[in-house]
Nucleic acid binder design. Structure first.
Lengths: 126, 126, 126, 126
DNA sequence: GTGGTCTAGACCACA
DNA sequence: GTGGTCTAGACCACG
């Protein structure tokens, strides 16, 4: 389900994080569903278990998953406390990137369209 | 004018880059204006000259500044070839961030407002 | 495998770059093959690790190699996005050089032969 | 007649060299024609005389011009001794660049066309 | 072990 | 004076 690309530039744990995040965001992994164990995933990706562990830990800090000792890792619901912090961070990035795009001549209508499309995609998905 | 924060996850040269980029984007540094010399800036930020040099070099590659041997570094005009590649990268980031924000429950109207405000700010500036 | 010449006008990192590029172009280093580590190469060339690092980084930007943190540097496949930009640059140089050679009296047939031979060499190689 | 572009990346003396070389190659400056004096050119380009001096010196070494003490600098004829060394250098560059272009997938016919066109241009010019 | 970043200080080329 | 390159040696992040 997750594709690792060594040529990607991003480190392995970042790619695993991004991959899982995408599965969660797109609803393929549902709330409270159990994630593969660290060992399982490390085997199936032929990757060091430490690397998977780290991805899980960071996803937990960002509020996407929660871990239950002795049981495993599970998909969190959106209303976790941490997700607010994450949102603030993302909004900050959004502002910075849009400022630069605006400076580089991206038209407002183009920017609006990009946002528009993402929200439309999501509505169709649900 | 530039604040370095050693606790910030970003590396020093990235922070310098971001700071200068902001000054350029916001029009505080005008086209063809001379930037502080590598040595000057390194002293005023109490940072190694190599680190400033690196930030300058990367800004040059991104098309924000140009360097003249023996004279100094200067703000480039925005119509440089490189800026297209940069724009594509930024649009990609914009999409990814908005997707995650959408998932985390940011309302479409809020997202639109953020974009709206940035473009309004800029118009007033000009 | 790589010869450094301090009398050569080019800087050290440029010579390292050119040397590696040649090995890649001539197929001596195959796609996804691992390059010597930064430290190894720096020792075997009796050169500072930073200098090798720089050569590697620039080769990465030009799309000849890719780097994986904690693992090493590897030969990229030639179908990278960057290579188009590189091609354009090279064609421009080709034009400029040929113009000057033409002026200096190089016969068209001689120029054609040079090109011809290079392409023949390559065909035999494959 | 010569355009200096501080954003060019190349150093000033290189640009002056390239500019004069082009004028000579294109026959705008004829054999044994006198070049502007160092002082004249430095004034008209608003550039340091040392910089012009250096360009002239290097053009002389490459066999494009010759200098007569107390009189000035003049366009050389093509058959100067030095021009052979220059030709060898250029052929070497030509080979290197073509090799890389070949590797990057430039078709032989495209390469041939580029050469072809340059020689045709020149014939028309004469 | 690997690559990546930073510091300290030197030297060269350019204008 | 300027930018550009290099060395020596340190520290961190990654797997």
């Amino acid at each position: 389900m997750i594709n690792l690309d060594y040529k990607d530039g991003r480190s392995i744990h970042e790619q695993i994080e991004a991959g899982l995040k995408e599965l969660i965001i797109n609803g393929i992994l549902k709330t409270d569903e159990q994630l593969p164990s660290v060992r399982e995933l490390s085997v199936s990706l032929t990757v060091n278990p430490n690397t998977v562990q780290r991805a899980y830990k960071e996803l937990e800090q960002e509020g996407f998953i929660y871990s239950v000792k002795g049981k495993g890792n599970f998909v969190a619901s959106l209303s976790r406390a941490n997700s607010e912090r994450r949102r603030d961070e993302l909004v900050e990035s959004l502002v910075e990137i849009t400022r630069e795009l605006c400076f580089l001549g991206l038209e407002k209508t183009e920017a609006m369209n990009i946002i528009e499309n993402i929200y439309s995609e999501r509505e169709e998905m649900l």
